[in-house]
C-alpha cells in the first residue's frame, strides 16, 4: 500500500459535483480525491451515480455544478479531448472501439501519428502498436484485421493499450475485467500494480469485490448519487463495503479495522 501524506497535492479533486437529468439527481454533491500512485475503487449499485461521475471526469458528460482540479489547478473539461490533454485516460466498459478499423487505427484514434507532410504514418502506428501490445499480450496476431473480428479479451487489450500508451497520469477503468478470462484478468491486475508504482492514479469502477480488495488502496462508495464513504482498504471488510453499497452506511458497531485491538 502507498499511503499518502496529507500535505501532498492530489492528482484530481472533484469538488461538490452535481449532475441532474430532469428531476433525477444522478450525482448529488459528490467530492472525490485521488493521489499519485493510488488505486481507488469506486463502488456502488447500478444507478448509484458512479459511472456518471466517471464520465464527468473523462469529459464525456458535463456537470451542472461543481469544479475539478488537476494537480491543484482548476481544470476546464468540456469534452474527452480536454480530459486527454490533462492526462486523464478512460477505459470504457463498452470499450469505445471503431469496429471497422484495425488495432493501430483504434489505438491512435483521435491522436494519429503523422509524417512530416501531415499524412497518416500507418507504418509508425503499426510498429508502436506491436511494441505496446507485446507488453500486454505477446500472442496478439490480428493487428491488420478490423477489431470486430477480435475476441472480447483482445478488444479489451486494445482499449487498455490505448489508455496507457499516451502520457497517462490519471486512469479511469470502468469494469476492466468484466469481459476477461482468468489469465487476462491477472494481466490487468499486474498492469494496475505496475502503473501505480509509476505514480499514476487509478480510479477502478468494479463490482468484483475480489478485484477491489486485491488491487485498491482505498474505496469510495456511492449510494443514491452521494459519496457515502471513503475508507482505506485496510479499515474495512467486505461486509462493511457491502453494507455501504446496500444501505448507504457502515454497520453500527464499525470501528476502523486497522485500529481494532487484536482479541
Amino acid at each position: 500500500m502507498t499511503p499518502h501524506t496529507p500535505s501532498e497535492t492530489p492528482l484530481v479533486q472533484m469538488i461538490d459535483i452535481e449532475k441532474h437529468f430532469g428531476g433525477i439527481r444522478a450525482v448529488n454533491g459528490v467530492s472525490l480525491d485521488l493521489y499519485p500512485g493510488e488505486v481507488v475503487g469506486v463502488l456502488g449499485h447500478n444507478g448509484a451515480g458512479k459511472s456518471c461521475l466517471m464520465r464527468i471526469l473523462s469529459g464525456a458528460m458535463l456537470p451542472n455544478e461543481g469544479s475539478i482540479r488537476v494537480n491543484g489547478e482548476t481544470a476546464e473539461i468540456h469534452n474527452p479531448h480536454d480530459a486527454r490533454d490533462l492526462g486523464i485516460e478512460t477505459i470504457y466498459q463498452t470499450l469505445a472501439l471503431a469496429d471497422h478499423l484495425n488495432a493501430p487505427s483504434n489505438l491512435f484514434l483521435g491522436r494519429e501519428l503523422k509524417t512530416r507532410l501531415g499524412n497518416l504514418d500507418d507504418h509508425k502506428m503499426m510498429s508502436e502498436t506491436v511494441r505496446i501490445l507485446k507488453r500486454l499480450n505477446p500472442n496478439f496476431k490480428n493487428l491488420t484485421d478490423p477489431v470486430s473480428s477480435l475476441s472480447g479479451g483482445q478488444r479489451q487489450v486494445i482499449a487498455i493499450a490505448r489508455a496507457i500508451y499516451f502520457d497517462v497520469k490519471i486512469l479511469i477503468m470502468d469494469e476492466p475485467t468484466a469481459a476477461l478470462g482468468p489469465s487476462e484478468t491477472a494481466m490487468v491486475g499486474k498492469l494496475i500494480k505496475q502503473l501505480r508504482s509509476e505514480g499514476i492514479g487509478i480510479l477502478l469502477v468494479s463490482h468484483d469485490m475480489h478485484d477491489v480488495f486485491e488491487l485498491c488502496d482505498r474505496v469510495i462508495v456511492m449510494n443514491k448519487g452521494q459519496n457515502v464513504g471513503s475508507h482505506p482498504i485496510e479499515d474495512v471488510t467486505k461486509d462493511d463495503v457491502l453494507s455501504l453499497i446496500i444501505k448507504g452506511e457502515l454497520p453500527h458497531d464499525w470501528v476502523p479495522r486497522s485500529q481494532e485491538k487484536p482479541q
Partner: peptide, 26 residues
Amino acid sequence: LNRRQTGRHIYATGSNEEAARLSGVL
C-alpha cells in the same frame, strides 16, 4: 480517405460515432 487524419475520422465516425467522440474525434 486513406492517408489523411480527416479520412480516418470519417471512417471512425461512421463505424462507431460514440467511440469516435470519446476518442477525441471532433
